[in-house]
Design a protein around this nucleic acid. Sequence first.
RNA 1: GGGCGCGUAGCUCAGUUGGAUAGAGCAUCGGCCUUCUAAGCCGGUGGUCGCAGGUUCGAGUCCUGCCGCGCCUACCA
Length: 648
Amino acid sequence: MFHQLETGISRAFAAFLKNQYNAELPVQIEQPKKPEFGEFAVPAAFQLARQLRQPPNAIAAAIAAAMPAISGVRALEVAGGYINIRLDRGTYGQSLLTPRPQPVPPEGKVIVEHTNINPNKAAHIGHLRNAVLGDTFVRMLRASGSAVEVQNYIDNTGVQVADVVVGFHHLEGRSLAEVLALVNDPSVRFDYLCWDLYARTSAHYDEHPESLALRRAVLHEIEEGTSELAALGHVVADAIVTCHLKTMARLGVTYDVLPRESEILHLQFWATAFEQLRDRHAIYLESEGKNSGCWVMPGSAFSSSGGEDDSKVIVRSNGTVTYVGKDIAYQLWKFGLLGKDFHYRQFPHPTFGTPLWVSTVQRGSAGHPGFGGGSSVYNVIDSRQSYLQDVVRAGLRALGYEDQARGSIHFSYEMVALSPRTCAELGITLSEEDQKRTYVEVSGRKGLGVKADDLIDKLIEKALEEVRSRHAADSEEDCRRVANQIAIGALRYFMLKYTRGSVIAFDLGEALAFEGETGPYVQYAAVRARNILRKMAARGESLPDFESALNADIFGRQLADETLWQLLLDASRLDSALDKATASGEPSHMARFAFQLAQSFSNFYHLYPVLSESDAEKRIVLLWMTRYYAAQLERSLAILGVEVPEFM
RNA sequence: GGGCGCGUAGCUCAGUUGGAUAGAGCAUCGGCCUUCUAAGCCGGUGGUCGCAGGUUCGAGUCCUGCCGCGCCUACCA
């Protein structure tokens, strides 16, 4: 409702200003600094002041006097050059009684690619930020009515998988059968085992640089896809993907489809993209200099300051394609521009509610939905890869796909690093240099980092203690389920509360916090709202039929209470907040709104004892507000991917 | 060297795209549990918005120049 009024007022002002002053300006609607100024503020008079050569206050007064009535608005007032708007509280309250209209779904499908973890080791907290950001943005888009397809790209033929294969085969001398046995051994955490093995293999390369030849050879075999080592690579990648899916499912993160690099290669996606790029002269065969023998994209294509020295190699001199090249082919497919499609089969997964599909070379299963062919594409990738995303976009542009290049959005975010204090707590020894830094970058190669599952386990353990201390009478099973929900709420909120552009210096203490600006704080508010309603039911009272019990007159009387009115306004801002957060691509805005909503409810909770209210009319309004708060809190949390526990 | 980002309270961070007296959380100090659960609420302390100019009715926000930090700038991804 708040949101509808906001846009309605904006339109009414825009139309009026165009008529009256022939002024085409985007009418801003602000929230006044102080509630005494009303519900909305329009600073349009400032913008007109120069053009009209009059003081803002005079213009504002003229506008306010001549403006035709706007539905739902009680009065326009002028103060300090602003036009302040006061709403009719009775009609506002009443309008919230009926469910909001469904948003009109925008045309086309949005594709969001996220997670995209190298399938060669356990997921760590950096991957968690990616997945939670991506998943939350997907939930925001869906809540806004968009059709969204979630892709998790699997780089199963890359260097990192090759490294683990080198580790198994060359360092440990394990056969394919032996590795398979490890994968199937329930007592072995295969992703943790590979975490260590990958670190050891990387160290081995450092100590024996000549062994890098092994990596090249294995990589080549994996790309070919026929040898036993290639099969080993597949076994490793599939097993690790399964581990990642399990980890992500714990957080409520799911996907629609897993496009894999092996199919990009074997279904000739790259070969097709290559022909297009070559024919359009987007890339050319370099004949001299350091890149001699490579197919390169000129630096000028993707960088304003790029010269020939900055050319990006797309095809190496040995004929193999770089990751970016494959990414261009993949991006073309995402927009339906490649003229090819994958085959698909279902990927086994224990916990998702909906089928999960994976690309395959062979003729796949029937009955899969249409994948790819999006009208806009969000790639959730950390900011270190912005250069590569520029190259991908330049590829589209060079092929003449200007719209799609514009629709290719690098949903970038800064990395998660470790605070020195947390490193110390985890027993990670740092160089003197690193100790002086405010944060230390995690490194999979060095095995330096916090594994996602370890962190989740730690959070659950701590939450369980808190739950048990408060609910000794509840069953272990119930406590465990609630602890789980609290842990995930804490983790998801922690990953979301920072804006995308700021580095998270991961601090264990902060991540484990359940008080203040945290997920559990918001969950607690939702639980308390529900408790009021539950308590009432326990007393044998049933909820009134609000639509018949309440009307504009009653709302008008009760909302004359300024505090109550402000609280109701807070609670009704969800759609407005969602719209702004989605438009600016900032899940953190959504998280912050949920926190502020919870703060608002906490105020309500303390100021208005609902069940003991003696005035009958007021009590009904308070009950309705309780239910309204509960619904808004639940919806906000659902958008953040956070569940509401039965008790806390 | 070039590109991107960051610099706001002791700490961690917001700041609605240029608007009214710069805000949260943590920490700290002081209050509030016989009440719908204190994972909560109320109050206090705490600011040269990195520095210097500029643009205008108005700048934490925009432009220029500095200073500091991070990331990228691979025939790795």
